[in-house]
Every structure is written in C-alpha cells, then in structure tokens.
Amino acid sequence: VKKMAKAIMADPNKADEVYKKWADKGYTLTQMSNFLKSKTAGKYDRVYNGYVIHLD
C-alpha cells in the first residue's frame, strides 16, 4: 500500500487507478489509515483524503 501511495504522490494522475484497486480489494478507511501511518505526520494525508473522496 505504501508503495502505491508513494506512486500517487509522485504522479497524482495514477490516483484513480490505485484507489479503484484498493476499493476492489475491500480496503476500509481504517485499514488505509493504519497502513499509511508514518513517523512523518501528515505525509500521506493527501492520499488518504483522496481515497475518502473516491469511496464517497
């Protein structure tokens, strides 16, 4: 998940494709939050927020 999150950060155009894969795998927002937690607070906030919007 972190590898794909980094791919989104490097190229935001990949976001919809990645979010669809995550949704197809049934990842919940709680799971995504836990996967994307980082020592650098807020590092993956943009990715998480994008997934929230995708699921909505």
Rank of each mutant, 00 (worst) to 15 (best):
A23E: 09
Y48T: 03
V1G: 01
T40M: 08
M4L: 10
A10H: 11
K2H: 06
N49C: 13
H54C: 04
A7N: 07
A15V: 05
Y27I: 10
I53M: 14
M32A: 02
D11A: 06
N13V: 08
K43P: 05
K21I: 15
K37Q: 12
Y27K: 00
Y27L: 07
N49E: 14
T28R: 03
H54G: 02
K25F: 13
K20I: 07
D11I: 06
A5N: 02
Y27P: 00
M9R: 05
G26F: 04
A7T: 09
K21Q: 15
D24M: 13
L36E: 02
A10N: 12
W22H: 00
Y27V: 05
S33K: 15
D11Q: 07
A15N: 02
R46L: 14
V52G: 07
G26W: 04
V52P: 01
I8A: 08
D16Q: 13
H54P: 00
L55Y: 04
T28W: 02
V52D: 03
Y51N: 00
K3V: 09
Q31D: 13
V1R: 04
K14R: 12
N13E: 12
V52M: 12
M9E: 03
F35T: 03
D24F: 09
R46C: 13
L55W: 04
N49T: 10
Y51T: 01
N49M: 15
M4C: 11
K3L: 11
L29H: 05
I53H: 14
K25D: 10
A7Y: 09
L55E: 01
V18T: 09
A15Y: 03
A41Q: 12
Y51V: 02
L36T: 00
K20T: 10
E17Q: 09
P12Y: 08
Y51F: 08
V1C: 10
K20A: 10
K6M: 13
G26I: 02
A5C: 07
E17V: 09
W22F: 01
G26L: 06
Y51K: 01
D11H: 09
Y44A: 01
K6C: 12
M9Q: 05
A23V: 07
Y44G: 04
Y19V: 00
N34P: 00
A10E: 12
I8T: 02
D24C: 11
N13F: 09
S33D: 09
Y19I: 03
L55P: 00
K14P: 00
T40S: 09
Y44I: 03
N49G: 08
P12M: 07
M9C: 08
M32D: 01
A5P: 04
K6P: 03
E17S: 10
T40Y: 11
K14S: 08
K37H: 12
F35K: 01
Y27H: 03
Y19G: 00
T40D: 11
D11P: 02
Y48S: 00
S33Y: 14
D56I: 15
M32L: 13
A5Q: 03
S33Q: 13
D11V: 05
L36A: 00
K37P: 02
V1Y: 04
E17C: 11
K21F: 15
I53K: 15
Y44F: 09
M4H: 06
Y44N: 04
A15F: 03
Y44K: 02
Q31E: 11
E17L: 09
N49H: 13
S33M: 13
N13P: 04
G26C: 05
P12D: 04
K20M: 09
N34M: 14
K6D: 15
A10L: 13
G50E: 06
A41Y: 10
T30E: 14
V18Q: 05
T40A: 09
A15M: 06
K20H: 08
T30A: 12
F35P: 00
K2C: 14
F35W: 15
M32Y: 00
L29A: 12
K3M: 12
N13D: 11
I8G: 02
S33H: 12
G42C: 07
S38R: 04
A41F: 11
Y51S: 00
S38N: 06
K20P: 03
M32P: 00
Y44D: 01
K43W: 08
K43Q: 09
P12C: 06
Y27S: 02
F35R: 03
Y19D: 00
G26Y: 04
A15S: 11
S33G: 12
D45Q: 08
D24I: 09
Y27F: 10
T40K: 11
G50F: 05
G50L: 05
K14H: 08
D24W: 08
K2A: 03
Y44T: 00
K39I: 08
H54M: 05
A5F: 05
W22N: 00
T28D: 08
H54K: 04
A23T: 08
I53C: 09
D11T: 05
A10T: 08
D24S: 13
A7F: 07
V1A: 03
N13Q: 12
I53Y: 09
D24H: 10
G50W: 04
A41H: 13
Q31R: 03
F35H: 06
Y51A: 00
I53S: 12
L29F: 09
M9A: 03
V18K: 03
T30C: 11
Q31H: 08
V18M: 08
W22A: 01
V52R: 14
Y44V: 01
K39C: 11
N34T: 12
Y44E: 01
M9N: 07
A7D: 11
E17R: 08
M9T: 05
K37C: 14
K14G: 06
Y19W: 02
N34V: 12
L36H: 01
K37F: 10
N34S: 13
V52C: 07
K14Q: 10
H54V: 05
N13C: 13
V1D: 03
P12L: 07
K43S: 04
K6T: 07
K39G: 14
Y44H: 02
Q31F: 07
N34H: 14
I8Q: 01
V18L: 06
D16Y: 14
S33R: 14
K25G: 06
W22T: 00
M9W: 05
T40P: 15
N13S: 15
G42F: 05
T28S: 11
K25H: 11
